[in-house]
Design a protein around this nucleic acid. Structure first.
Length: 950
RNA sequence: GCGGGGGUAGCCAAGCAUGGCCAAAGGCGCAGGACUUAAGAUCCUGUCACGUAGGUGUCCGAGGGUUCAAAUCCCUUCCCCCGCACCA
């Protein structure tokens, strides 16, 4: 026997599969198709072992479906759209040392690096890496004849068609959008995983209501997150030391901090600075507050921050702890009051109650400051917490008090949005966006929220589309259940989504406005439909210029007359009809697999675009979401590194080992922490199966008494595997295949099983079940039987008479007796050289039958039983009670439901017990009490023989 | 805030839908043994407590309840994690 050498085996079989073309998918009308994909990767750099988890799951399902007899289509592509590939290429051009190091670490040569400074070359380079070093290396059974990627010209034709169809359905629209952008580089995502940020990835975009206070023909502006509190305004807070600017905005003059002007410039047109004004100049004066139209006083404060909002704060001391404490401090600060001659004026400034909440009543700020014992306005941490607590309780349980004009009595929740809208309509307020913390681009410039005028959107908010999609989602096969329960809500929540950008991005030119490039989510929704066409493009049957609107209309929608389409596209009728019939054969898509990050990003628009564009019968049927592989300190990520290159890992651990690790170490639906020790453990597991299968091949003996058991168990477990696989419960299936079945084989050997024919049958059956998970080792092992390309075979059928409950229960019985003997030997202080087994007397068996037939009669059976049975009534009574107790506690034991000849079974396995316990074993028949020094025989009951050890 | 997922033995992790052979799979770790002299071995055995006879007690975040029977169902409560949009 050779040793198990994964590296050699995996290379060998991957080559042979490729030669043989076992992954090829051709239309075959006689077979049912099964079409599945995984969410193709964005071309962003090297992938890691986390990605391989999803690809492995997809492959396991693909291979299993093939072995079930389906004609499986499993294509893939890549997705370079967006700026990730582009910016990596740019960084290499610039010679950024970390990026060069990153390339080298992952096996790129100097020539490679030189080459990929051209973004298009970078895409080609990574396509090769993904295909050769990842997918092929992992034995993923993809048919690469269908390969395509989203920046190829043919793919772009498809995307343009898709957008024409969206427009046709009225699903495209234009409106202003406020998005995050670097002031140097343009749009950038603010996201913790974003590689183009050097700071502030966790920042949130916030929408402030910008309140306008009339002041000498100008407006002092103050930003707030709580517009509903305007009714409680008592004063403004201004930093006397700060130099504020006067800016012309929308024909008005606004007073605000320099920093705020800088931000506003990106959000409003023609913002011009016309003047400046020192904070202290305003102190003690009055400005007219919005909504309440009262003149409120401007007071000095030091806690205002020019970076937050406008640098000027409106004060609501009743509800804002900061304001309350600042006001109190100021009232005590005689020096300051004197300096600005506020002594008399400030007396009038007092909190005005506006909201009543369940927890805090009215004037919550004052109450919470006392309760939390906050003494200083510099105690930021406590004040922040206090603000949060009040806000939370106010938002949910608060009601507006009577002074709040038309909003009196309304809930805070509703008032908030309403007040804001009303003020904006009246021209008393505006909207300003800001980030919750400072965000800096990789280039060193600031990231701001900027206005993008006339941004294109896909109208996912469309009611009809949402409803249709939701209805379809209800009937899809979605795993896991938690996501299935959620998908409809996610679709409902899914709002209009911007679908194009300007700037340096790779992607398809927007067909209605060439300045725009379609962005990455929007061009990756309908693509499974395109693989089928891509194959024809790859084979040269169709060219880019043939792929016009009529062509796709015909192929995807069955629209148009073939003669016209042929003329319009310049393609032969047969070609077009061939593409169309391929599409109708393979579509709809059966399963789309992707990581959990896609739950609210890719899957909803994937589904909705299908619903919006394709015919009803072509809507996708299933979604499978897998969770992540994580490192010790969180997600394994491209940006943070942390994982070794995939090809190295493949050789270090073995591909089959890794695949088994993915499949078995955790449910697909939880995050799994990477653990090298665990991976090696799976290597050992495969090693032990390797050895076991060799042993099974070698042993070639006669039939034995345990054959029925092994055969029955094997097929019972096979049935279980099928059930699990039908539910995509990969882990449970793997658990049966790699643990339960081998342990049944072990038991068979232990019990003296030697039947060569049966062992061959079970071994080959086991190998077939292993194919989807660990195909390489299986091919190698199946050579022992002279089988070639076992991956192309069908799963074993379950022979009609193979499953025998009786055979299984007999062994179960032996296991129980064995466990009982063992326990006794552990506890009892005896030598244990002789073991006596007493089968329960005949009358107990008969009584049991009677009881099981009349389970409701209870002790009422006693009379009947004493009459019929030849045993002392006292013993019968005790026994019957015992049986009822067991029935009540544990239900009808399985072995009670069939007849077993216990004496026979024990006698047949006497040798086994003798070997197990190195003891002499004697079995006594039902009414044989010829030797019973321990007086144990009477304890025997059916399926539980009495035991005496000495 | 909105939406979702969890808390199971030293650790990781099944089970929970459909209550009952559940003291609770599997793995890791730990302990003991076998085998060999090398391998990241392999194979047994044990790993809640007590117990001179196959038993008993306690146990699945905490507290209550339903039931003949609860890790599983219901209520209350504490704690942890994730997604929220132009980011693939």
């Amino acid at each position: 026997m050779k040793d198990y050498d994964p590296v050699e085996i995996e290379k060998k079989w991957q080559e042979r599969w490729e030669e043989e073309g076992v992954d090829r998918a051709e239309v075959d009308e006689s077979r049912e198709p099964f079409y599945l994909i995984f969410a193709y990767p964005g071309v962003s750099g090297f992938l890691h072992l986390g990605h391989m988890r999803c690809y492995s799951y997809t492959d396991i399902i693909a291979r299993y479906k093939r072995m079930e007899g389906y004609n499986v289509l499993f294509p893939t592509g890549t997705h370079p759209t967006g700026n990730q590939a582009y910016s990596l290429s740019k960084h290499l051009q610039e010679g950024v040392p970390e990026k060069i190091d990153y390339m080298k670490r992952n096996g790129a040569t100097e020539e490679d690096i030189e080459r990929v400074k051209d973004p298009m070359e970078l895409v080609t380079y990574f396509n090769e890496v993904y295909i050769d070093k990842y997918w092929k290396k992992f034995g993923i059974s993809i048919d690469f004849d269908y390969f395509t990627y989203s920046t190829r010209e043919d793919y772009k034709q498809f995307i343009k068609w898709q957008f024409r169809k969206l427009k046709e359905r009225g699903l495209l629209t234009q409106k202003d959008y406020f998005g995050t952008e670097c002031i140097e580089c343009g749009p950038v995502a603010v996201d913790p995983s974003e590689t183009d940020l050097s700071k502030g990835g966790t920042a949130e975009k916030q929408e402030y209501t910008l309140l306008k206070f009339e002041y000498n023909g100008r407006y002092i502006t103050a930003a707030t997150l709580r517009p509903e509190t305007v009714f409680g305004q008592t004063n403004l807070w201004v930093d006397p030391e700060e130099e504020y600017l006067v800016a012309e905005v929308q024909g008005e003059e606004w007073i605000l901090s320099k920093e705020a002007v800088d931000k506003l410039k990106y959000q409003k047109d023609n913002v011009k600075v016309v003047d400046s004004i020192k904070g202290e100049e305003m102190i003690g004066n009055y400005a007219t507050a919005p909504v309440i139209h009262r003149d409120i006083i401007i007071l000095p404060a030091s806690f205002t921050d020019p970076n937050v909002g406008t640098g000027i704060v409106t004060s609501v001391p009743s509800d804002a702890p900061y304001d309350w404490i600042a006001l109190r401090d100021l009232k005590k600060n005689h020096e300051l009051l004197k300096k600005y001659t506020l002594k008399d004026k400030i007396k009038e400034v007092a909190p005005i109650p506006i909201i009543e909440s369940k927890d805090w009543g009215i004037n919550p700020a004052e109450k919470i400051i006392h309760e939390m014992d906050i003494v200083s306005q510099d105690d930021n941490e406590k004040l922040e917490e206090a603000t949060q607590r009040i806000y939370k309780s106010g938002f949910h349980t608060g009601k507006m008090l009577d002074i709040c004009e038309k909003y009196s009595g309304m809930r805070v929740q509703e008032t908030k949005e309403l007040v804001k809208q009303d003020m904006i309509e009246e021209g008393e307020a505006d909207v300003m966006y800001d980030l919750s913390e400072e965000v800096i681009c990789r280039c060193g410039a600031k990231v701001v929220v900027g206005k993008i005028p006339d941004q294109w959107f896909i109208r996912y908010s469309d009611v009809e589309l949402s409803e249709e999609s939701k209805r379809h989602a209800e009937n899809m096969d979605v795993k896991p259940q938690s996501y299935a329960d959620n998908l409809s809500d996610t679709i409902e929540w899914f709002q209009d989504r911007s679908c194009a950008r300007r700037g340096n991005w790779m992607g398809t030119e927007f067909p209605f406005d060439e300045e725009w490039v379609i962005e990455a989510i929007a061009d990756s929704t309908l693509y499974p439909a395109y693989y089928i066409v891509a194959k024809h493009y790859n084979e040269g049957n169709i060219k880019v210029e043939n792929m016009n609107e009529k062509f796709f209309d015909f192929v995807y929608l069955g629209r148009g007359k073939i003669a016209e389409v042929s003329e319009d596209t310049g393609l032969h009728k047969e070609t077009i009809e061939q593409v169309r019939s391929d599409f109708t054969y393979w579509y709809p898509l059966n399963l789309n697999l992707g990581g959990k990050e896609h739950m609210t990003v890719h899957f909803p628009p994937f589904l909705m675009n299908h619903v919006a564009i394709l015919n009803k019968e072509d809507r996708p049927l299933g979604i499978f979401v897998n969770w992540w592989l994580v490192g010790k300190s969180g997600k394994i990520s491209k940006s943070k590194g942390g994982a070794e290159p995939i090809p190295n890992a493949a050789e270090k651990y073995g591909v089959d080992t890794l695949r088994l690790f993915y499949a078995h170490s955790a449910s697909p639906f939880v995050d799994k922490e990477w653990s090298e020790d665990e991976v090696f453990n799976y290597r050992k597991k495969l090693n032990s199966i390797w050895n076991k299968v060799h042993r099974m091949k070698k042993i070639d003996g006669e039939e034995t008494s345990v054959d029925d058991y092994l055969r029955s168990r094997f097929y019972s477990l096979l049935k279980e595997v099928k059930e699990h696989m039908d539910d995509h419960e990969l882990r449970k299936a793997a658990s049966v295949i790699y643990y339960h079945i081998p342990s049944e084989v072990d038991w068979y050997f232990k019990r003296g099983g030697t039947n060569g024919e049966l062992l061959n049958e079970v071994a080959v059956g086991l190998l077939k079940l292993m194919v989807p998970f660990t195909p390489h080792i299986v091919e190698e092992l199946s050579e022992l039987w002279g089988l070639e390309f076992i991956v192309n075979t069908r799963l074993p059928e379950i022979p009609e008479d193979a499953i025998s409950t009786k055979a299984e229960l007999e062994e179960e019985y032996i296991k129980e007796v064995k466990a009982d003997i063992k326990q006794i030997l552990e506890v009892a202080e005896v030598d244990g050289e002789h073991i006596h087994l007493y089968v329960s007397p005949g009358w107990k068996e008969r009584a049991l039958t009677k009881i099981l037939e009349n389970p409701d009669k209870g002790m009422g059976l006693m009379g009947e039983l004493t009459r019929e049975l030849d045993a002392p009534p006292k013993e019968i009574s005790r026994y019957v009670q015992q049986i009822f107790k067991t029935l009540r506690e544990k239900g009808a034991k399985g072995s009670w439901s069939v007849e077993l000849d216990e004496y026979d079974i024990l006698e047949m396995s006497r040798e086994f017990f003798e070997e197990e316990f190195t003891a002499k074993v004697k079995v006594y028949g039902p009414d044989d009490v010829s030797y019973d020094p321990g007086s144990k025989a009477s304890q025997a009951i059916p399926r539980k023989p009495a035991i005496y050890v000495e």
